[in-house]
């Protein structure tokens, strides 16, 4: 049933069926999310600035998720020798990079009025900056090595080594003193964010994920086509 996740032909068929409904659902979710954000309440401390969170947090989550997906596909690709996983690695790396830069940029815009600084070198901000550099290096590595197999293996190993950064990003706010606030939602006790703000945040997260998914499907399809025609 999930063959389309490892087989290019099955993936193409799956993509052809799902792409159109997916675009419609994405548009609806995005519009709903933006309306919810518009009518979401102002924060008792931050006032209007809290709305940056609805861009910042989804893009941060998706930056991490994209890398996690690449890590899983690198393991599958290296261990089970499935070439499709390398196609996915190549296709989604720029998506992750864009989400990371969105996260860094929106965070910076929030940090200036709230913290009083655009940027500090605390553990959370630095580890996310490293994530962005990792994405850039992965994109650059895609343009090195004439030999495709060598290139893909190198990238997969690089992704695996870089994946150690993921738990560091997640737990940096708990392990060390940071200026960045600790997690509000993914913690053991109930989320310390009011339900009226959590709803728009979750809808925006779904919308961002769907936008990422659509771009990913298009890029993967293009990559499959290119390999069929030129290799």
């Amino acid at each position: 049933m999930f063959k389309f996740l490892v087989n290019p032909n099955k993936f193409n068929k799956f993509a052809d069926i799902t792409l159109k409904p997916l675009v419609i659902i994405t548009l609806l979710t995005l519009i709903a999310g933006l309306i919810l954000v518009y009518f979401s309440p102002l924060d008792y401390q931050q006032g209007l600035t809290v709305k940056i969170m609805y861009i910042h947090v989804p893009s941060a989550w998706l930056a991490l998720l994209t890398y996690a997906i690449m890590t899983i596909y690198s393991i599958i690709g290296l261990a089970f020798k499935i070439p499709f996983s390398f196609i996915i690695n190549k296709a989604i790396a720029p998506i992750g990079a864009v989400f990371t830069i969105l996260c860094l940029f929106s965070g910076s815009m929030w940090g200036k009025p709230m913290w009083g600084t655009w940027w500090v070198w605390d553990a959370r901000l630095t580890s996310v900056a490293i994530l962005f550099i990792l994405y850039l290096l992965i994109i650059f590595l895609n343009h090195t090595f004439e030999n495709r197999e060598v290139r893909e293996k190198t990238i997969a190993i690089f992704i695996l080594i870089g994946s150690i950064n993921l738990p560091i990003i997640k737990f940096s706010v708990d392990w060390w003193n940071t200026l960045h606030q600790p997690a509000s939602i993914s913690k053991l006790s109930s989320p310390s964010i009011d339900i009226s703000m959590l709803q728009p945040l979750l809808v925006m997260t779904v919308a961002f994920s769907l936008v990422g998914l659509i771009i990913a499907i298009l890029r993967i399809k293009a990559e499959i086509l290119m390999r069929k025609n030129y290799l």
Binding site: Y44, T117, Q181, P182
Partner: peptide, 17 residues
């Protein structure tokens, strides 16, 4: 020489406060 404000992880609508 520099003062930063640290925000905690609580988010709450002003009306609820």
């Amino acid at each position: 020489s520099k003062v930063y404000a640290k925000h905690d992880e609580n988010y709450m609508p002003a009306s609820i406060k």
